[in-house]
Design a protein around this nucleic acid. Structure first.
Length: 615
RNA sequence: GGUUCCGUAGCUCAGCUGGAUAGAGCAACUGCCUUCUAAGCAGUAGGUCCUGCGUUCGAAUCGCAGCGGAAUCACCA
């Protein structure tokens, strides 16, 4: 990822006094280095890391970088630093040194105060957005209206939604937008096939979801088109030529031309079929739990793109070939010539993307324009930014392509022709069935109403699916193994949902027993190792949100939620909570539980996953 | 062929700007439910971090080369 292009992510801490222990330590170490050895060290370059489990301590400073200049042995530097920092930072209860590693132990009181202050804060981990700030606009989904959504779109939608939530959690003023690719040759193919072979079939007459119906005719087109190409080739035509000359293809191109000319008949058919598709998409979006602040349609923006092309011609940064097609010469940038208008004057993908970029910039005055689009389009976005720059837009560098990896299946890539696409609606439906089976097997929810059960199945199904996809680094290609995706054990969404439900159960019972979370602790408590591990994990949430946002990586949030859940379960396994007889200790532990529940809920919310109070 | 990305346990993935003995889950094997939800917990086994060279006190992480894989280089989107 091009780090230099990551702009404007606000990475400050949220509530200073509690999250600044790290900075405090770094500052103290830097000061000590200066006083002891006269070294000028910037605090943020002090390497501070969590102490590994096998050593005692909470934070570790690596002193190797300073030993040469200090002219002391690593151990000596570490000991001298440790002693001085212990004096200056009240939270430091002690330290130990192993080789060049200086391990600081933080006083339990610090952790206990942290839990006491935060456990009732339902927005723990989130920063507030400033509504006056220029927004960050995130485009995602961007479907074509000629076929239903599939697994690839699912990753896009989940990522787009989650990254938006993530940036918002980190304090950005986020606007989610969708750019519907509702025009173009692909739609004409569906329309043509429907006219030719459809016999007037509608979603109502067939009982088929609109997007699936239109998709059916897209496949139908391809089938007949292939047949035509084969026939031409049998007559001795070269394949390349046959693909151009097949009557269906010529007719589709003709239809596109008529569409751009505003032919009423074509436009009416187009409107009708697109409406079918939108009704289908809306249902899928609703089931996935994603949505948008604004929806753009390319049919409304492509003309602006054409105007831009004209402007580019006037400016002399674009040129027209003899056949009438318009191009941009990018050879000076190490790239190639790029077509912007076809010979027949119709626009291509790039043309309309120029238009939408300008429109969006004008609409929002955005600080940043993020496009969640697969890495197969890396080249496209490189070119888009270049051309915007050539057209004289100084905001071209605000365009950021959030490029994510492809989804592969165990037996290779998805190919619509070979019927190996995983349909989004089918997948969700299967997950719901699995969730229902799992719940039945466990039999823990027999007293829930049918509506409650249905909602629970849906929540768990989506939790499993979303977590499975979002837990992997977005920039990487991922393998979607259906068998593993429906697993509810281990590093999965339902595991985290389950942990949340368990905690809710404890908190409910605590209330029944008269434990009042508003009460303050009557005396200090002594933390067990497992408690301390849980608290430290909780303490990391704000900084995890900040770094996940800086990296546009929901995966970092998913991993965090998993670590927290695991840490909690380990604690829960062998630590009495409600069974604890010391009322003060019991109160602390319930507070701790409550903060874990809040943190899990908030982390999962960033992923677009809801958590149940019972399951 | 040019460009870009990737290569960590049998499989799927973590491993933050270089730091201590490389971690999880799944699969396999052992234990733990008369006790707060066992969708859990604890443990065993499993590694040439693709290979080689280099930079460094220190490399899975940075650089170069090679091998292997993917994407892209359309008058498709």
């Amino acid at each position: 990822m091009e780090k230099g292009l990551h702009p404007i992510i606000n990475t400050g801490g949220d509530t200073p006094q509690m999250t600044m222990i790290e900075q405090k330590l770094q500052q103290a170490v830097a000061d000590a280095l200066n006083r002891l050895y006269s070294l000028e060290v910037s605090p943020d370059t002090v390497v501070l890391q969590a102490t590994k489990k096998e050593f005692t301590g909470d934070y570790t400073v690596v002193v190797f970088p300073y030993v040469k200049q200090a002219r002391r042995s690593p151990e000596q530097v570490a000991n001298e630093l440790g002693a001085m920092v212990k004096e200056s930072v009240s939270e430091v209860a002690g330290f130990n040194v192993i080789k060049g590693f200086l391990n600081f132990e933080i006083a339990d009181n610090y952790w206990i105060d942290f839990v006491s202050e935060k456990h009732l804060d339902t927005s723990f981990g989130f920063k507030k957005a400033n509504p006056d700030e220029a927004p960050v606009v995130v485009e995602y989904s961007s479907p074509n209206t000629n076929k239903p959504l599939h697994l690839g779109h699912i990753r896009n939608n989940l990522l787009g939604w989650s990254v938006s939530e993530l940036l918002a959690a980190n304090g950005a003023n986020v606007k989610k937008v969708n750019l519907v690719n509702d025009r173009g040759i692909h739609i004409c193919k569906s329309m043509l096939a429907w006219l030719r072979f459809g016999n007037g079939e509608t979603p109502e007459s067939s009982g088929m979801k609109g997007d699936h119906l239109v998709g059916k005719y897209y496949v139908e087109f391809d089938k007949h088109y292939k047949e035509e190409v084969r026939q031409l080739m049998d007559k001795g035509m070269e394949e390349e030529e046959a693909k151009k000359q097949a009557p269906l293809m010529l007719e589709a191109q003709q239809m596109l031309k008529r569409w751009e000319e505003g032919d009423k008949e074509i436009r009416d058919l187009w409107t009708k079929m697109n409406e079918w598709v939108y009704a289908g998409f809306d249902e899928t979006y609703r089931k996935m739990g994603v949505g948008f602040d604004k929806i753009y349609y390319e049919s409304n923006t492509y003309l602006l793109g054409k105007e831009l092309v004209q402007k580019g011609l006037d400016m002399g940064v674009l040129y027209r070939k003899e056949d009438g097609s318009v191009w941009c010469d990018l050879t000076g940038d190490g790239l190639d010539q790029k077509l912007l208008l076809r010979r027949d004057g119709t626009s291509v993908y790039m043309t309309q993307d120029l238009g939408t970029a300008l429109l969006r910039h004008n609409d929002f005055g955005a600080e940043q324009l993020i496009y969640v689009v697969g890495n197969e389009q890396d080249y496209h976005f490189k070119v888009l930014k270049l051309i915007l720059g050539k057209l004289g837009f100084d905001w071209a560098d605000k365009v950021y392509h959030l490029s994510y990896g492809m989804v592969e299946l165990p037996n290779g890539k998805m190919k619509s022709r070979e019927g190996t696409v995983v349909d989004a609606d089918d997948l969700i439906a299967e997950m719901e069935v699995t969730a229902e089976e799992m719940c039945r097997d466990h039999g823990k929810n027999d007293d829930m109403t049918p509506d409650q059960l249905k909602a629970l199945y849906h929540m768990l199904a989506l939790g499993a699916l979303k977590y499975f996809i979002l837990k992997v680094d977005p920039t990487k290609n991922m393998l979607f193994n259906p068998a593993e995706s429906i697993d509810f054990n281990g590093n999965t969404g339902p595991f985290i949902q389950y942990t949340h439900a368990r905690i809710c159960s404890i908190v409910r019972k605590a209330a029944e027993q008269g434990v009042n979370l508003q009460d303050t602790l009557s005396s200090p408590v002594t933390l067990t190792d497992k408690e301390r591990a849980v608290v430290k994990c909780l303490h990391d949430l704000p900084s995890t949100v900040a770094s996940a946002a800086a990296n546009f990586s929901p995966a970092m949030i998913a991993n965090y939620a998993y670590d927290l859940a695991k840490s909690f379960n380990s604690f829960y396994q062998d630590t009495p909570i409600l069974r604890e007889t010391d009322a003060n200790l019991r109160l602390f532990r319930v507070k701790l539980c409550s903060l874990v529940a809040v943190s899990l809920k908030n982390a999962m919310r960033i992923l677009g996953i809801e958590v149940p109070e019972r399951m």
